[in-house]
């Protein structure tokens, strides 16, 4: 729970977190090393100096540290954990659903663990989606269209195998499809950041919600255009939000564009933990005001109501969380966190 300077309590759902193992022991090859190094680049270039971790801390952290950073030091009430396998880079995967599920067990009621699949697996992908539903009752998945697999360097949401997977998700009620459209890993030959495939699947799968992580930041303009037309397309703010510290003016312009085109009902806060920690992000976001000239130019405002929606209420709606009931439940089951 975040308590504002005015004493108001704001319910926070962190829409994008990870529990990864990028340690040298788990790295399979140079790509594994470069992947976690790249994450660290994001961490170090956009974090406030007093929030910097060492490379060692960053590569692998304990479940207790995660609980502490999110729920004790941090203001999160709940967090969505995204699974990212990357088995071509990491011996045991970067963060598989097994690893995430085990971590989440330590704090009942706090985590929503999402699955992941790779449509290039064909029939096996369909079987795996059944397994995710039956074993973990997942409500969402995180897809990396850019993930390497053998000699393939990426896929599109509109590929026939992908359509079959999305059909199955819709049928099983795995309704929230988070799609990584953003920096870091990229397909080889395609326009790495093209978001147009989202447009097609959003039209064809009205029973699914598509949450575009990082708002397709390298293609924010294209993303905005798609989100205007598709009622079931949402934007995740991870990567865009940390600009609030180092480049507040850019952040003001980016959030203004998003508010204008996408709207306050369709944006989700996410810390991208452990790339960033939620406390400073939430504090700065709550206290942020769009400069007057940008407000005028764009004709938008970031009101308290908008902030409440972005920080938690929008995600609660997507994941069918009754916020008032959840508050009571969390109050009655205090955190069990080991001393740091």
């Amino acid at each position: 729970m975040y308590t504002t300077p005015d004493g108001e309590e704001v319910f926070i759902i962190d829409g994008h977190t990870h529990f990864w193992d990028g340690s040298p022991e788990n790295q399979k090859n140079i790509h594994g090393k470069q992947f976690i190094d790249c994450f660290y680049g994001y961490h170090s270039s956009l974090s406030p100096k007093d929030k910097l971790w060492t490379r060692e801390q960053f590569a692998k952290y304990s479940a207790d540290k995660m609980y502490h950073d999110l729920f004790v030091d941090g203001p999160d009430d709940m967090a969505i954990v995204q699974s990212t396998y990357l088995k071509d880079f990491y011996k045991n995967g970067f963060n598989t659903i097994e690893r995430n599920h085990e971590m989440a067990q330590g704090q009942p009621g706090r985590f929503i663990v999402n699955g992941a699949y790779d449509p290039r697996d064909g029939e096996e992908a369909l079987e795996y989606i059944h397994f995710l539903k039956e074993t973990y009752d997942v409500k969402g998945v995180k897809l990396y269209t850019a993930e390497w697999k053998g000699e393939s360097r990426g896929w599109k949401l509109t590929d026939p195998n992908s359509y079959r997977c999305l059909e199955l998700c819709q049928k099983l009620g795995i309704t929230n499809v988070h799609i990584h459209k953003g920096p870091t890993i990229i397909p080889l030959d395609k326009d790495a950041f093209d978001v147009h495939d989202v447009d097609h699947v959003a039209t064809d799968f009205q029973g699914l919600n598509f949450i575009i992580e990082h708002c397709g930041l390298p293609r924010l303009d294209d993303f905005c255009w798609i989100a205007v037309q598709e009622t079931n397309v949402y934007g995740g703010l991870a990567v865009a939000l940390p600009f609030i510290h180092s480049r507040p003016r850019y952040f003001a312009e980016v959030i203004s564009e998003l508010l204008f085109w996408v709207g306050e009902d369709k944006l989700l806060f996410g810390s991208d933990y452990a790339i960033w920690t939620p406390r400073w992000l939430v504090e700065k976001f709550w206290n942020f005001e769009i400069p007057e000239d940008i407000k005028q130019e764009h004709g938008v405002d970031l009101t308290k109501e908008a902030k409440r929606k972005i920080l938690g209420l929008n995600a609660a709606r997507l994941y069918n969380i009754d916020v008032e009931a959840q508050k009571v439940r969390l109050k009655n089951s205090p955190l069990a966190v080991a001393a740091e």
């Binding site: 660290y40 930041l217 312009e253």
Partner: peptide, 25 residues
């Protein structure tokens, strides 16, 4: 002009990200 502004804001944010990552690296 609104459409052009979106293009510029996107490019500027990308530029800032790229410079920050290059510095970090």
């Amino acid at each position: 002009m609104r459409a052009l502004r979106a293009v510029r804001i996107n490019m500027e944010a990308n530029g800032a990200l790229c410079r920050g990552l290059l510095d970090a690296r």
